[in-house]
């Protein structure tokens, strides 16, 4: 049985000119695998991630013919049970730890919170688990980091802390929404390797949302390409180079490489894409 099964997912926001659909009826299935969702800004990829966690704020409207997680119908699940899923069975790493960690709460306490929501561990047990989780993301002095505030750590360490917080209960599914785009290139690989390692070890399903085709191709098994709220292409990561859809081909052609000489990089021709 698949972990996640989505059919005809739509997300729309009312505006003065009538509702605007940002996700236009997408369907996909996910097993315990690593799935990449790529697309440009505004293509609906982040909204898809948040819709799965039911975190689209009002006045946004989410509808789907089917949105099942491990046999549970996410469209009708009561709020309380949805809360029990979040953080424990489905979690999400967000883009920039500068904004996604609470500035006035100690790092250790922020991680320990997940345990207090979902487990009956006492304070000492929670602390031990948090220290373990910090070690798991290769933080060498967890005791010290536990007591720090988010502004006292670097971006790379912040994102590792975020990952520790999101995997501490070994969820079945983790969504990583642009997990490295706020980081320096030098620490991106490190953070991704840690994430990859944890995913492989615990066997969770992973969705990486990104605009970085190379990164996604390297770390994922399968890739969905989204454009304008729709999935325009699905392929195995290894097959990305042979993509058929003109948008994907356009994206690939717009990437510079080291071993070629071009005076100009091609850009996407949106007028043409609108009609496909």
């Amino acid at each position: 049985m698949s972990l996640l099964n989505i059919e005809n997912l739509r997300v729309s926001f009312p505006t003065e000119q009538g509702p605007v659909e940002v996700v236009k009826g997408i369907s996909f299935e996910l097993g315990r695998e690593r799935l990449g969702i790529v697309g440009e800004s505004g293509s609906g990829k982040s909204m898809t991630g948040r819709a799965i966690l039911r975190l689209i704020d009002k006045p946004g409207i989410v509808t789907a013919d089917k949105m099942e997680f491990d046999g549970l119908d996410l469209t009708t699940l009561p709020n309380k049970q949805m809360r029990a899923l979040r953080g424990a069975r489905i979690s999400m790493v967000m883009q920039d730890p500068k904004f996604s960690l609470n500035p006035v709460i100690r790092i250790g306490d922020q991680i320990a919170e997940v345990l207090s929501f979902h487990s009956k561990l006492n304070a000492r047990q929670r602390r031990a688990r948090v220290l373990e989780s910090l070690e798991a993301v290769r933080i060498t002095d967890p005791e010290r980091v536990y007591k720090l505030y988010p502004h006292e750590v670097s971006g790379g360490m912040g994102q590792r802390i975020m990952i520790a917080m999101m995997v501490i209960l070994e969820p079945d599914l983790m969504i990583a929404d642009e997990p490295t785009s706020a980081l320096d290139v030098s620490v991106q690989a490190q953070v991704l390797d840690i994430m990859d390692d944890l995913v492989t070890r615990t066997g969770m399903g992973l969705i990486i949302i990104s605009h970085d085709l190379n990164m996604v191709a390297r770390y994922c098994d399968r890739i969905l390409v989204m454009f304008n709220g729709e999935i325009v292409e699905t392929c195995a990561a290894s097959e990305l180079a042979n993509a058929k859809h003109p948008y994907t081909q356009g994206l690939l052609a717009s990437m510079p490489t080291l071993d070629e000489h071009r005076n100009r990089l091609p850009v996407l021709d949106r007028d043409q894409l609108g009609s496909v």
């Binding site: 975190l55 809360r83 920039d96 999101m166």
Partner: peptide, 13 residues
């Protein structure tokens, strides 16, 4: 703020 979303992602009441 993003960290409020984080709190919700963690399953906070």
């Amino acid at each position: 703020q993003e960290y409020v979303i984080t709190a919700r992602v963690k399953g906070a009441p």
